[in-house]
């Protein structure tokens, strides 16, 4: 039931959106999102409803932390 992949909003019509899940188009309701999203945003979709708009700043920050963690790990791995 869980879709683990974020879906891209292609088109919005009132409270419904056409979203692309890895290229496959589906419909998703936007009525459970606290803030209205815009086309091009990525959303977490569950059972036909968007539940969260992916936060690009948070995504960047978590990637930065990941790279830091990996580089610290590499340093430790040096002989």
């Amino acid at each position: 039931m869980c879709l683990a992949i974020p879906a891209e909003i292609i088109e919005i019509e009132e409270e419904m959106a056409v979203v692309s899940v890895g290229g496959a188009l589906r419909k998703a309701s936007l009525m459970l999102l606290p803030e209205p999203p815009k086309e091009g945003d990525y959303v977490i979709v569950h059972a036909g409803f968007a539940l969260h708009t992916v936060d690009p700043a948070e995504a960047e920050e978590s990637l930065r932390l990941l790279r830091e963690l990996a580089s610290a790990a590499e340093d430790e791995n040096l002989p």
């Binding site: 990525y42 960047e60 990996a70 610290a72 790990a73 791995n77």
Partner: peptide, 22 residues
């Protein structure tokens, strides 16, 4: 950003995994 391949980087994954193993 599509929030997919960025989180599938094999080089980073290898480093993280090695760190867990060590």
């Amino acid at each position: 950003m599509k929030y997919l391949h960025e989180y599938r980087d094999s080089g980073l994954a290898r480093s993280l995994l090695k760190a867990l193993q060590k």
